[in-house]
Design a protein around this nucleic acid. Sequence first.
DNA 1: CGCGATTTTGAGCCATGTCAATCGGAGTGG
DNA 2: CCACTCCGATTGACATGGCTCAAAATCGCG
Lengths: 243, 243
Amino acid sequence: MSELGKTHHPRTEEVELALSAFARRVLLDAGDVVRMRQLMRSFELHPAGFPVSSLGPGPSLKWIVTGWACEARVLPDSRRQIFSFLLPGDVLLARPAHATRPCTVVALTRLECIDVDQLLSSATEGPRARLADAMATATDINEERKFEHIVRLGQHSAAERVVHLMLDLRDRLAEVGLVRGDTFRLPLTQEHLADALGLSVVHVNRTLRALRTKGLLEIRFGGVTLLHRQQLASIAGRVQAPP
Amino acid sequence: MSELGKTHHPRTEEVELALSAFARRVLLDAGDVVRMRQLMRSFELHPAGFPVSSLGPGPSLKWIVTGWACEARVLPDSRRQIFSFLLPGDVLLARPAHATRPCTVVALTRLECIDVDQLLSSATEGPRARLADAMATATDINEERKFEHIVRLGQHSAAERVVHLMLDLRDRLAEVGLVRGDTFRLPLTQEHLADALGLSVVHVNRTLRALRTKGLLEIRFGGVTLLHRQQLASIAGRVQAPP
DNA sequence: CGCGATTTTGAGCCATGTCAATCGGAGTGG
DNA sequence: CCACTCCGATTGACATGGCTCAAAATCGCG
């Protein structure tokens, strides 16, 4: 059962980052932003390592303000497949507990999020439609990422998968202002990467070492720095060399 | 551009199979069925090998009466990833041509389908709600299959992937009465299988040969027969022997 | 300082990919 | 009916990426 709280005080800076990214995406005016900031004082807090499930009988959308989560499924033989990582600014679909059908959402870090239904119902008339729209778009993007992920798993080598994922995470974090230079927090163990990318932990490690050796990225202390974005992009297969 | 036709006469038997499967799923009464049969006289015909795109500016749902399709994306280096196979009874999301963003739907055989919007608008009040519900459910199932596919690609060996897919196809075709014994049509080349399962054509071939040699299935003439469903299921699920 | 979790490394094996050639059936033109 | 061609299926030889097992090193933390 997820521990909910309305009182914990989030790190103001991160909330402000999320808010301003949100204001940009949804085109909020100054007044809207003030009201949103008010709304964001009450949020759900989910502890790291626990499933994020909906309280009601049906599924519910949550908008992530702070923290990371993932969608995953554990197979009968205890292997685990991670379907996606969910970052601040993303929307996650929390299903009722016990509904393990498609996948389970699990908090990877302490997770602060806002119930989308509540958000919409307490928003003022003006931004409500744009908010609803943004939430729908976010959900679509989640689906689209599934396609990307299938391509990664089906067509890419280990190095390509790792790099492709890192670039994806970078771009998404950059949109919410969580990238400085090309450095960002990465609260994932190599086992998480392995489970997401369909590789063994050992091979993820070797792959990272190879990239590090080539001076393409640095990973340390739960953080990454991408060193040659251009070159990394070409490894990930995103760019075709002109023929 | 897909060739549309309202005149071609589908094979009555297959249409009746689709209709009765549909009636079962949506709980149509005899009168509904008669009206549906009327509706199904006019359908869109898409030739094999061509993209199935929506005619209007937005995406549109089509209900497949006859034939196979797939969702796929071609990568810049000409590799191809197939995301899903779509069978009679399934619903496909046709996007406007030029919208290659997430994926493209391609007809693998001659494809007869009905536009869902038209279907709903011409249905009588009684079944309309149940129809809409069935279409929404079908769409959800499509999404759920993406998760299954990710698991296949991320966690399964070549043999497991092949068997898992075959069992999936069998179950889905069985629901619309297209399986006799454990034999069904399979209008896929080994290259299609390879592109879907993230394997090389050569290795798909070898994997099939191994399964054939073990007497687990037969593939010939665009058709398959599964011989030991039980045993195949245990291969696909990596059921562990008790230690 | 000791413990559990994670990262790192090495050695060796096996699955899968690549390259290249052959084979078989279906269609096509003569 | 034959020669030709094309596409897909098949096979062999060989290279290699990624896995497994096992152990060491390192880190985070009490």
